[in-house]
Simulated assay, not measured.
Amino acid sequence: MSDGLLISMEYPQPTALCPDERSLKSAELVGYLNNKASISTFVDPRFQARRTIVTLDDLTDAAPAEKSWVLKAATNAAHGASLDVYLHQAGQPVTLPAFADILTEFVIEEYLHIHRNWGIQLYIAADAQARLLAVTEQRVDADGIYTGGRFGHVTPLPAELRTECLAIAQRAADVGYRGLCSLDCAQTRDGQLAMLDLNFRITSGSIPLLALRSIRPDALDRPAESVKLTADTPIATLLDALRPALRAGGLLVTGGHDTRRTDNPINQSTLHLLVYGDDPADVATRRDAIETTFGH
C-alpha cells in the first residue's frame, strides 16, 4: 500500500489494517455480499430456495429433527472463512455446528435434492461490467458436501441460470464490487433451478482456472478435476509422495498450507491439486487413485 497500490481483499479485514481508501472494495461491502442472508437481495425470487432468517432464540423451533433443512451462517464478518454450511436430513439427530455458538442470526433453507450442481465463475473488471469466465461442475458426496470441481467438459448450464448468474454479478458490480466471484447453482431432481450460494471472492472454483491459464493455457478447455488432500504430516512429506504423479504429467499443485508455519496448535497440511488430461474417464480414475492413496 505504501506504493499507492489498492488492496483487493477477499475477506473483511479491519480498517486499521486495510483502510477503505486504500481498498478496491470496502470491508463492509465484502462482508455484506458474502453474508448468506444477502441472497434474497441479489437473486431473482424464481431461483431462490425457500428460506427464512432466524435468531439464535428461534433456531431450535425453526430446525426440527423430523424435517430436512440446511443451516447457513448469517454474518458480515465471515470469521476468516471458517464457517461451514450444515445439512440435516429428516430423522437424524441434530448436532448443531460450532458456528451456532458464536453467531446470533442464521439462514434456514429448504433441503434440495440435487441432480446437477454448477459453480459459475465470473469476474467484474474496472469497467464495472460482469463477464462470464467459465462454467464448472461441483462434485458432492452422498451427504451433499463439496469434494471438488470439474472443469473443461461439463454438463451444459441451462440458459436461464446463465442469464441470472450474469445478472447477479452485475447487481453486485452496480453496488461497487470488483474482482472474481463464484455463484453456486443447481438443478433439482424435479427440475427446479436454484441459486445455492454467492461467493464474492476467489474460490476453489476459480483458482484452478487461473493456474491453468498461467501454466498450461492449452489445457483450459480439456477435462480436469480438482481435489484437496489433508494430512497430519508436514507438507513436504505430502509433496514427496506426489512427485511420481507430478513427473508423469497431467497434475498441478494449485495451493498448499501447513499449520506448522502458523501459531495453530493442530498440525495439519493441505494440498490443492488439479488433475487434467484428454479423457474425462481417465481424469476421474487418476483423481480417484490420488484420493485413495492418501486415504480420502
Rank of each mutant, 00 (worst) to 15 (best):
Q187T: 10
L132Q: 00
T136W: 00
D184S: 02
I202R: 10
P156F: 00
I145M: 11
H115L: 15
A194Y: 02
C181L: 15
M195R: 01
T188F: 14
Y177D: 10
E110T: 09
S182I: 01
V140W: 11
L157P: 06
S182H: 15
D141W: 02
R139A: 09
Q121N: 06
L112F: 03
A167D: 05
I145F: 10
R162D: 12
Y123A: 14
M195A: 00
F200H: 00
H113F: 10
I145T: 14
R139M: 11
I120E: 03
G149W: 03
G152L: 03
R131N: 13
P156W: 02
H113K: 12
N199K: 03
E160M: 12
T163A: 14
D141M: 04
C181I: 03
Y111F: 15
L193F: 12
E160I: 04
G119M: 14
I120C: 07
Q170F: 01
Q121W: 05
R201K: 02
C165T: 08
R171V: 09
G149Q: 04
T147R: 14
L112S: 09
S182G: 15
Y146N: 06
L122N: 04
F151Q: 00
D174R: 07
F151A: 04
V175T: 13
G179C: 02
Y111A: 14
I168A: 02
C181M: 15
A172I: 04
A126R: 14
G144L: 11
I124M: 10
T203Y: 00
G176Q: 06
A169V: 05
T188H: 14
L193S: 10
D190I: 13
G148C: 09
G148V: 08
N117M: 11
H113G: 10
T188I: 13
A128D: 14
N117T: 07
R131Y: 09
R178S: 11
R189Y: 11
A186S: 13
T203F: 00
R116W: 11
D127H: 05
